[in-house]
């Protein structure tokens, strides 16, 4: 497949995630949109790694594994991030009994 198609698909997914962050007020949905943006980047990294592999196949048979390992590490970091972020959201819900981010525009009560 041409790399352009993957590029535009990833851009569209990233933009959908961005629009979700801008238009929703539920903190959990905003968090999910961030996950969607991370996944768009992951897809593009894998596509580029395969492109790089095809281009430099004659030089080195294992070229392009770096990109896929980056995707692996992004997933690791995302898993850690989700656990801490959801703990923060649960704490916020316990304090203000809502997940509406509009209530967080002031940091003191």
């Amino acid at each position: 497949m041409p790399i352009n198609y993957y590029l535009f698909l990833s851009l569209a997914l990233f933009t959908i995630g961005m629009v979700g962050v801008l238009t929703r007020r539920n903190a959990i949905i905003i968090f999910m949109c961030i996950e969607l943006m991370l996944n768009a980047v992951n897809l593009l990294l894998v596509a580029f790694s395969k492109m790089h592999h095809l281009k430099n196949l004659a030089l080195n048979a294992s070229v392009g594994t770096d990109g896929q390992l980056f995707v692996f590490f992004i997933m690791v970091v995302a898993a850690a991030e989700v656990s801490v972020g959801l703990a923060i959201i649960v704490m916020m819900y316990r304090n203000i009994h809502s997940v509406d981010i509009q209530f967080l525009n002031r940091l003191k009560h």
Binding site: M1, P2, I3, N4, V46, K50, M51, H53, Q68
Partner: peptide
């Protein structure tokens, strides 16, 4: 990179052994 292709359905770099 408009003319570049992504390798589809082939190549062994995504296999568990290599990674």
């Amino acid at each position: 990179l408009k003319s570049q292709q992504a390798m589809v359905g082939a190549g062994s770099i995504g296999l568990i052994k290599v990674l």
